[in-house]
């Protein structure tokens, strides 16, 4: 049976992945899709929409409103409005954790630290400077250097017993350090854990964190060990939404819902 309820769509077109989330009127996630963004953002976003609608068992005509976000936010042909990913990640996280929070989002090419107060209002935000260190792109580069699949890094890091620390800020210099460690016979799993540690250090340099910390983004979704390492480093538990890669898209869908409500 077709889902005919008014549906709200959020499309997060990131530099690496495009994510679409569909919420129903009760703010339940009824459909979603994640695809590589590729070079045609418009086509990829639409493909994600179609897959999400299929999951929701709905036709496009059931969509009451759609909002886009992310680097490709102006390339989404079914979106009526756009918001920045800062706003959408904030909204998406607050939906799941309605308290004062610091959000760490680790994406394909940028990191964000967003602080919200207890009412969900943004207090501040920081994005990484013009450098890929500490982002998903850094992990991709390192997996290529180590000749291991990206999706295998998490399990390897978890096996480490003697982490190798990488000193450099720079992705290219870090790669040189990785090669040097291989030459000195260090174990791959210890190097991978060092790579994860480097990501964490770059993020923690960006801003101070409030008591409640939430982590999101594709890197977090695929590397839970990184969250565990971060918890050990900051000395408190970190909250992760069920679908950490989708929080930006969910935040955009919530904006779509609020905008539709304001129109009504």
């Amino acid at each position: 049976m077709l889902n005919t309820a008014p549906l709200y769509v959020g499309a997060d077109v990131g530099a690496s992945r495009t994510k679409v989330a569909i919420l129903d009127a009760s703010k339940t996630l009824v459909g979603y899709a994640v695809l590589k963004s590729g070079t045609d953002f418009t086509a990829t976003a639409r493909q994600c929409l179609m897959q999400s609608l299929q999951m929701a068992g709905a036709l496009e005509s059931a969509v009451a409103n759609a909002v886009s976000t992310g680097y490709g936010r102006h390339n989404v042909d079914f979106a009526r409005d756009s918001r920045t990913e800062i706003g959408c990640h904030g909204g998406g996280c607050y939906h799941y954790f309605p308290v004062a929070i610091s959000i760490i989002d680790i994406g394909g090419q940028d990191n964000k630290v967003i602080k919200l107060d207890e009412a969900g209002r943004r207090i501040s935000f920081k994005m990484n400077r013009k450098c890929a260190a500490g982002t998903g792109a850094f992990l991709e580069e390192m997996s290529a250097r180590l000749d291991i699949p990206l999706e295998g890094m998490n399990d390897l890091a978890a096996q480490s017993t003697d982490m190798v620390k990488l000193g450099s800020f720079c992705t290219v210099f870090s790669a040189t350090e990785v090669l040097e460690n291989i030459r000195h016979g260090k174990k791959i799993e210890d190097i991978v854990k060092g790579v994860f540690f480097s990501v964490i250090r770059r993020v923690l340099e960006m801003d101070s964190l409030s008591q409640n910390v939430v982590m999101t983004g594709g890197v977090v979704a695929h590397n839970p060990h990184l969250v565990q390492m971060m918890e050990e480093l900051i000395g408190r538990p970190i909250r992760v939404p069920e679908k950490p890669q989708l929080t930006g898209a969910i935040g955009a869908a919530l904006y779509a819902m609020n905008a539709a409500d304001e129109r009504d």
Binding site: R83, T84, E85, I86, R122
Partner: peptide, 10 residues
């Protein structure tokens, strides 16, 4: 651009 847009949103 993203930073400025997000700041004005804030």
């Amino acid at each position: 651009k993203t930073n400025v847009e997000a700041f004005i949103e804030q």
